[in-house]
Amino acid sequence: MTNISVSSVFWSLIKRDIKLAWSQGGAAGMTLGFFLIAVTLFPLGIGPEASTLARIGPGTIWVISLLACLLSLDRLFQADFEDGSLDDLAFSPLSLELIVTAKAIAHWIATILPVILISPLLAALLNMPNLGYKMLILSLLIGTPALSFVGSIGAALTVALRRGGVLLTLLVLPLYIPTLIFGVGAVEAAISLTDPFPHLALTGAVSMISLIISPLASAAAIRLALE
């Protein structure tokens, strides 16, 4: 019992969560579907003029990824909370801070990464200028971890609530605003041939800060729920 490797427990938990996210009842497939459908609504609602679509493209994709992330977050801890496996996790050698970190990472890999991977396809549907593609993917890669991590705080705070989804939205969306501003800023800078790096750096900074704060806050909230 003495030489338990914390890192292998950590990776096991990530693997387990990814598997669950992609199995029946998991949120990953649905999130991807939501992302596809919601983005295609924009040309239909706003009109198919190429120049308008090109103008709103980066912002639309960022906003919809944000909403897609939000949609999948309410089950981040709740599924485990409801069937009792969160209690079992509390007896693993990982601290709760590491447990929520592992779950946020798994959420990002299982749910957000696929969204990022198909985003160029949707950017093409929105007629986004060629200059923006690389930066769109890059900014999403750098910025979206903040969405999973900050979102984990909201998911942890609402874990015991039966209809926590709405409250989760209210809590988390305001905290997403910085990531959205800087992420979209980077893509638009790339399109307008100015320097996207400052925006990208700020996007990364938000991700780093959320990486530090979120595990502490989420773990405290989970502890509250497990009482």
Partner: peptide, 15 residues
Amino acid sequence: DNLMVLDHLNGLKNT
């Protein structure tokens, strides 16, 4: 590290 606990909930995943 020394406890094993059974609660009301079974901690099982349907899938």
